[in-house]
Design a protein around this nucleic acid. Structure first.
Length: 257
DNA sequence: ATTGTGGCCTGCCCGC
DNA sequence: TGCGGGCAGGCCACAA
């Protein structure tokens, strides 16, 4: 999916719909509704006026004068507001805008919003439980990261990917951050010293800011080396490709400890 | 409770 | 050119 950086772009894109009223919801993919019947959500949505566009982690929130609308984008979801998309290409996503992949379409009194998601892993939820999300990675503090890592025996990477602990990081951002900070993703999350937690928190914040400026989660320094047989862009050592936290992981055995 | 695994979906890319 | 296999930025249910 788009990670925190892309969802923040979507949030800015969605700002113009604040103040608009939902007139119709012609498309709602049942697959993304967690068992709730499309008609049920449609009935609740029609007539609502959007009051704010927020983001927590990878969750886009549209507040209204009724329930809050939560939009998730899965791995391939893109947001199109008033028929224009700011991100027209996603790493690993399809490069076309096929209307057959529209999973959510909302028509307002003026203009529209749609989620185009070939792989159908995103979804819509009303009044999502925000308590299930950890501190937002873009501004995470030392102490928030320390409590997110806790004394966990799980790997550092899996803990950083766990949205209940730290919200917003996906596979690419975690690999980039750990590579920059020089941590082995397989280390126990609870095994970091206080100084290491401080260094990691700073690297997370800096990396998110840096890649935001560059234009996306896929613009990291490690990214060009995310392929078999590649070498570390920092020290030239052969990169290691393995599964950590259930995800494909690239790491440098020479400088990530 | 915590941690790891498998599966959901579909498009794309590579090699034969 | 066509086909099959492997891959994918997320998340959830489930099992140990």
């Amino acid at each position: 999916m788009p990670e925190l950086i892309e969802i923040e772009t979507y949030r800015r894109q969605a700002e113009p719909v604040v103040g608009r009223t939902i007139a119709a919801v012609p498309t709602l993919d049942p697959l993304g509704l967690r068992g709730v019947h499309p008609e049920e959500i449609r009935a609740e949505l029609i007539g609502l006026t959007v009051t704010a566009a927020r983001r927590i982690g990878k969750l886009l929130l549209l507040d209204t004068d009724g329930p809050t609308i939560g939009l998730r984008f899965g791995m391939t979801g893109r947001l199109i507001v008033d028929d224009s998309a700011e991100i027209d290409r996603l790493e690993y996503g399809a490069n076309r805008d096929d209307r057959a992949w529209d999973r959510t379409v909302v028509e307002f009194d003026r203009g529209s919003l749609r989620v185009n998601d070939p792989r159908r892993l995103g979804g819509v939820e009303l009044d999502p439980d925000l308590a299930r999300l950890g501190a937002d990675a873009a501004s995470i503090t030392d102490s928030a990261l320390a409590s997110a890592l806790g004394d966990s025996a799980a790997t550092l990477k899996s803990r950083l990917l766990d949205q209940r602990r730290v919200a917003g990081l996906g596979n690419l951002l975690v690999d980039e951050t750990l590579w920059r900070a020089g941590f082995d993703p397989r280390r126990a999350a609870g095994g970091l010293t206080a100084a290491e937690v401080t260094r990691l928190a700073a690297t997370i914040v800096d990396t998110v800011a840096d890649l935001t400026q560059r234009g996306g989660s896929h613009t990291g320094d490690l990214q060009p080396a995310r392929e078999r047989g590649a070498s570390c862009p920092r020290d030239g050592a052969p990169l290691d490709r393995r599964t950590v936290g259930g995800r494909t992981t690239y790491l440098c055995p020479a400088h990530q400890r």
